[in-house]
Design a protein around this nucleic acid. Structure first.
Length: 521
DNA sequence: AAGTTGCGCGCG
DNA sequence: AAAGCGCGCGCAACTT
């Protein structure tokens, strides 16, 4: 059966889109490029990728016509023997590793992610162009002619110029804006929002409004719509397609390229609208990072605090801290390596209550400060510091080292420590999310398809969006309840897959909606 | 003219 | 309020 086949190929991103275009969807694969990257970092000896495993440019959605250049470019595709040899080498590396079982799971999850990434791009995120335009017009005024500011933005710019007595000011120029603000008597060193909000000058309100709307215009305005949303047809919404990049972040999180898919602001989420007769099932997992940490450290006390849903509230109930807000600040400080302000008081409290969990991240930080590498739960290894890092540390270690060199080295070591501290947690959370999504996909595929005439893949519930700890499934209305169950069961299943019988839960907030903004609590 | 850097801000 | 981690992107300013 097809379910038992695992396709081994060099690079999902360059092969699978063409299969999808031809109506073919596969159950499983082994992506040699992604797996090589993981194994090479995990391997003690240097292991460079063969040239045919380099990251391909994203496949165009509409294949370009062959050009003269194609005829002149030597065919870089590997022979079957090359592929088999690389695969054998990878399997051997897994077998020789400290924990083959976990590493195998990681490679399977990473490869499943590659399939999902290509499928999500193929299917696209349903996007209602008209609703988006309504939002833009309400905020900015009607669409202006090219190279002109929208009405509302122009009014605010005029107000700012007036209040700063600076008739020629371009508020988009950070340098001249800072100068104008300081001339007007504001004691600031940057034009950042957090600094402006502390000032009481009358220019602050219109300026912040200007910045917010200018951001909306440049990041998700009409130009963005034209470039990234392809029009719908026959009652179907348009689609936003980004290029997901599995493993694009060192920790194993995905990155995206194109359209700013990771930063779709709350204000335009109302434009993400299900097709008629369809729904969006939006699921986000609560406090994944501290839960992943509890699992890794086998910290029963922390796991217990997270049992009833809100882990931060659980910290309050357990009497560790007195407010939810403090619980969150303290926990994030432990995960990110924060030291300032409240963290100084909260961290000792957390260390007392959760010595195993805090001990694990403190240890990871120490390894990083000394130039070492750390691993996630499933075995993704952090990249080692570069030669420049060691050079700075070496200089500061000499007997006649100058004070500035020592300061620089200490600061650099602490930076590295914060990176490795967070790496183990962020990376393990990413592994949980991958397993969650892979299991969700597997179960969605097993659902009976509902008759629908929208073409291959479109009649089934399918994943349409993923953002670190949140997924969106687009589904025929009648299957929405079942999809919600699948998402919950898959979250549970992912927790067991990673942490076995250890009692750590991964609760979800699930909402079935017609547009993405309705999922906000 | 084209590439790089820094700022600022959106997201988790 | 940001802080402490991880990103992408647009703009202006600067470099080549």
């Amino acid at each position: 059966m097809a379910g038992e086949i695992r396709w081994v190929w060099p690079d999902t991103a360059s092969v699978y889109p063409r299969l999808l275009a031809a109506g073919v969807r596969l159950e499983r694969c082994h992506d040699l490029r992604l797996c090589h990257a993981i194994l090479a970092l995990a391997s003690p000896a240097p292991w460079s990728a063969p040239p045919w495993l380099s990251r391909a440019a994203p496949e165009p959605l509409v294949p370009a016509a062959p050009t003269l250049l194609d005829d002149l470019t030597p065919d870089s595709s590997p022979s079957l023997a090359d592929v088999v040899a690389e695969h054998q080498q990878q399997l051997a590396a897994v077998a020789a590793s400290a924990d083959p079982g976990r590493l195998r799971l990681l490679l399977a999850a990473e490869s499943a992610g590659a399939l999902i990434a290509a499928e999500m791009r193929h299917d696209g995120l349903p996007w209602d162009r008209a609703r988006h335009e309504v939002i833009l017009t309400a905020e900015l005024g009607p669409r202006p002619p090219q190279d002109r500011r929208p009405e509302r933005l122009e009014q605010l710019a005029a107000q700012v110029r007036e209040l700063l007595h600076s008739p020629d000011l371009n508020p988009d120029s950070q340098v001249s804006l800072l100068k104008a603000l300081r001339n007007a008597g504001l004691n600031i060193t940057s034009t950042a929002k957090w600094e402006l909000t502390r000032q009481s000058h009358p220019v602050v309100a219109p300026l912040l409004d200007y910045k917010r709307l200018a951001r909306l215009l440049s990041a998700n305005g009409w130009h963005w719509l034209d470039k990234w949303v392809d029009p719908g047809e026959g009652g179907r919404q348009g689609r936003f397609r980004t290029d997901y990049v599995p493993g694009g972040v060192v920790t194993g999180r995905w990155a995206t390229s194109g359209g700013g898919a990771m930063q779709i602001p709350r204000t335009v989420r109302g434009a993400v609208v299900a097709d008629p007769g369809w729904r969006l099932v939006v699921a986000d997992a609560a406090q994944v990072e501290p839960r992943a940490l509890a699992g890794m450290a086998a910290d029963l006390a922390l796991a217990t605090a997270g049992q009833d849903g809100d882990l931060y509230a659980g910290l309050v109930t357990s009497g560790v801290v007195d407010t939810r807000e403090r619980a969150k600040v303290g926990m994030l400080s432990a995960l990110y390596g924060g030291t300032s302000g409240e963290a100084g008081v909260l961290l000792p409290q957390l260390r007392r209550a959760y010595p195993r969990a805090t001990g694990l991240v403190d240890h990871a930080a120490g390894v990083g400060e000394r130039g070492g590498t750390v691993r996630t739960w499933l075995g993704r290894t952090s990249p080692p510091p570069g030669s420049g890092w060691h050079a700075v540390q070496g200089r500061a270690g000499e007997s006649d080292a100058a004070a500035p060199d020592e300061r620089m080295a200490r600061s650099q070591a602490r930076n590295r420590g914060r990176f490795t501290r967070n790496f183990v947690v962020q990376g393990t959370a990413a592994e949980w999310a991958l397993c969650w999504m892979a299991e969700t996909r597997r179960r969605l595929r097993a659902l009976d398809p509902v008759e629908h005439d929208d073409g291959p893949g479109q009649g089934h519930p399918h994943l349409v969006f993923f953002l670190h700890d949140e997924v969106v499934v687009h589904t025929p209305e009648g299957l929405a309840a079942e999809v919600a169950d699948i998402l919950r069961e898959s979250a549970e299943s992912a927790g067991r897959l990673l942490f076995g019988g250890f009692p750590i839960t991964f609760p979800l907030h699930v909402a079935t909606v017609t547009s993405y903004d309705q999922a906000d609590k």
